[in-house]
Amino acid sequence: MLTIKNLHASIEGTPILKGINLEIKAGEIHAIMGPNGSGKSTLASVLAGREEYEVTEGEVNFKGKDLLDLAPEDRAREGVFLAFQYPVEIPGVSTTNFLRTAVNQVREYRGQDPLDAVKFLSVMKEKMKLVEIDQKLLSRSLNEGFSGGEKKRNEIFQMAMLEPTLSILDETDSGLDIDALKIVSNGVNKLKTSETATIVVTHYQRLLDYIVPDFVHVLYNGRIVKSGTKDLALELEEKGYDWIKEEADAASV
């Protein structure tokens, strides 16, 4: 579904990603871990099309299309979803109104009829259950005054509404207490099918107890320096990142 080849990206001239290679197939969950500043969030942003990042080399193929060639909104319409680490507030625009605009633009792109208000609400009611989100929250201004947990739940709710094929969760666990973490993970797991894939960007192994990855990759200094299974995450939890850094630094000398 997604093939990343030798991806290099920089921000304001500073290289952050220095040759990422990754292959993700439908039905898989990949965890991207790594110490602070290793480029995890940059990778998520570059895939979603954030323009401050300049791709200097490499290619990304998504379902047979050149992803890097698409505008951010077209990537979303093609099925790429990014759950933001820091969801943005939009005063005066309710989540419901926001999502209705989004869902209908995505549907239009996919050649589907727009959902009328009644149909939209019924779809919404069904998806609300997945993340146990309250309808009252959805009629409030998007993310304005939401708690950290509410914001993250709202991200996963939006993911449920937009039915992406590739979901990228950017540190969705940060700022969540254990109950909220369970609810969010539960939602993600329920949304997973054999047709979809998920990239989980995280700092801690804790989240991976709930969203169990097929593969774990360690990003360090803009490269994937180690890949493995869930056991790698456990090892990192136990030993920290230093041994990986040492290994990688030794190899690059």
Binding site: A48, A76, R77, L82, I90, V93, T101, Q105
Partner: peptide
């Protein structure tokens, strides 16, 4: 704000109208 809207499939023009 614009990027957030774009990422949900909303064009920049409609994002501005919404905001």
């Amino acid at each position: 704000q614009l990027f957030y809207c774009n990422q949900r499939g909303i064009s920049s023009e409609d994002a501005v109208a919404l905001i």
